[in-house]
């Protein structure tokens, strides 16, 4: 460890914490654009009496100043208390926490498959630049990359649920009544959708990065110094190809996390995304802001890890001061 590296790590952590604070403030402000009376009316319905509105506003403390409520919300949030839903009256954390686990598992599974397949295809293509196979596959990847996620999901749903009948129509049933196996099965199609969503982007960057690394001077130099092909590949070529790749994998992990919203809804998977869509639809502002903050937390955590890996991989930063 050297001083400059520590300084770099500290700066990135600080910047990410600041970002998180900013996201929380903007989210909270946006959820308070509506007047308290309007929030009450959107939840209770149009024909509601003035005392009922006043009672609702007082019960959910919507009449306190925004700044005080923001401070209170943040203080509770870091302790794991996300407030009570203004629609159902249940504690938000009870609905959110189990779903967060499922959604993270789903995003992780999808990313793992998508990133692995993407790198494999990219490296495969990098050795065939300019060939017919290369051109066809690259165009195919571009076509896949231009498909909205929900269309990829609907295609999978049509083939595997409607026509082949291999999977249940609503994933949620398995979580209410099914055993472990039934629950595991429900992950397959949503995870496959996320994998297909990420794969083309990873493959394109892996292809370009590998191609560039192998064509570079330092690989030629390593060969000329008489290093073994294995050392050339792993210590010189792939290590440098990994830099742009890690950054794009980071972007795509974030993409996978937000991609959960669509697959949840599409497959009826009881994750955080389905609850987010439902809470926006029903005007459940407290649930919405809690879920957005949880997503933001996960995303910032991913960014921190990506930053650290980049620092570790980049020889200019790693070796500085040695």
């Amino acid at each position: 460890m050297n001083w400059r590296l520590l300084q770099q790590v500290g700066m990135r952590l600080g910047a990410n914490l600041l970002t998180l604070a900013l996201i929380s403030a903007v989210t909270f402000l946006l959820m308070n654009v509506k007047a308290p009376e309007d929030i009450a009316r959107s939840v209770l319905g149009r024909e509601v009496s003035a005392p009922q509105i006043a009672e609702f506003v007082a019960r959910h403390e919507l009449d306190r100043p925004v700044l005080a409520r923001y401070a209170g919300w943040m203080a509770d949030f870091v302790r794991g208390d996300f407030g009570k839903s203004i629609v159902t009256g249940r504690p938000v954390s009870a609905d959110v926490v189990t779903r967060l686990g499922r959604s993270l598992l789903l995003a992780a599974l999808g990313s793992l498959v998508g990133v692995t397949a993407g790198i494999a295809i990219g490296v495969f293509l990098a050795r065939r630049i300019g060939s017919k196979t290369d051109f066809r596959l690259v165009t195919g990847l571009l076509v896949l990359a231009s498909m909205p996620e929900f269309l990829i999901g609907i295609a999978l749903y049509l083939v595997f649920v409607v026509w082949l009948g291999w999977f249940p129509t609503q994933a949620g049933m398995a979580f209410s009544f099914g055993d472990v196996w039934a629950r595991a099965v429900t992950f397959v199609l949503p995870a496959a959708t996320i994998a297909l969503l990420l794969m083309p982007h990873i493959a394109r960057v892996a292809r370009a990065a590998t191609m560039e690394a192998f064509a570079s001077d330092y690989v030629d130099a390593a060969r000329l110094r008489g290093l073994s092909e294995r050392q050339v590949n792993w210590d010189h070529a792939f290590r440098n190809a990994a830099l742009p790749l890690v950054s794009v994998i980071g972007i795509n992990l974030v993409y996978a996390v937000s991609g959960v919203v669509v697959v949840d809804y599409l497959f009826g998977f009881p994750g955080l995304g389905a609850l987010l869509v439902a809470s926006i639809g029903s005007g459940d502002l407290f649930t919405t802001q809690a879920i957005v903050m949880l997503f933001a937390l996960v995303i910032v955590a991913i960014n921190v890890v990506v930053d650290l890996v980049m620092l570790w991989l980049n020889p200019r930063l790693r070796l500085a001061g040695r």
Binding site: M31, K34, S258, V261, I280, T288, V292, F295, A296
Partner: peptide
Amino acid sequence: ELMMSLPALLKILLLVAAF
């Protein structure tokens, strides 16, 4: 750069939830 810290879909959903 700061605006990029939330993914596009979440940003749009937040705005739709608010307005």
